[in-house]
């Protein structure tokens, strides 16, 4: 019996360890976090509002809960009312160094007033490219 439980626990741990799909925290459906980034990122809040009167603005406040400096690779994607992604430099992949426990706010303004929704992808640069979709660059 003990052996069976041991085997099951090992299998469960192995499966958990092999998980490479980006996670979508249920609390913040706009966020997509890569498996590596998930291990050290602590999300404090997702904020949204408007800039320049009619341009959607979104941001995420986070910090690095590990004891080592990390580099975060992130991208904001913007979508129109029909769900099509909008082009623009606000949809570039960018990088942000994260020192331990230092709160960081990353925010962007939508490229067009047509933007009605957004997605924020947060990945570690070491996550294989196949897991993080390639962005469009203006």
């Amino acid at each position: 019996m003990q052996i069976r439980i041991g085997v099951l626990a090992t299998a469960a741990l192995a499966l958990w360890g092999c998980q490479t799909q980006p996670q979508q925290p249920t609390q913040y459906p706009q966020l997509q976090i890569g498996p590596r980034a998930q291990s050290y990122l602590q999300i404090e809040a997702v904020q949204e509002g408007y800039a320049s009167s009619n341009l959607l603005r979104a941001g995420v406040r986070l910090y690095n809960r590990s004891s080592q400096e990390q580099t975060l690779r992130y991208r904001f994607s913007w979508f129109d009312a029909n769900g099509f992604e909008l082009k623009g430099m606000a949809g570039r992949w960018e990088q942000q160094p994260l020192r331990p426990a230092e709160p960081v706010m990353i925010d962007r303004v939508a490229p067009s007033p047509k933007a009605v929704s957004y997605r924020i992808q947060l990945f570690d640069p070491r996550t294989p490219v196949a897991n993080s979709t390639q962005g469009i660059d203006g």
């Binding site: 690779r73 991208r75 570039r92 992949w93 640069p125 490219v129 390639q134 962005g135 469009i136 660059d137």
Partner: peptide, 9 residues
């Protein structure tokens, strides 16, 4: 020679 994808690491 290879094509570099936009936003590649």
């Amino acid at each position: 020679t290879r094509l570099l994808p936009q936003g590649g690491v």
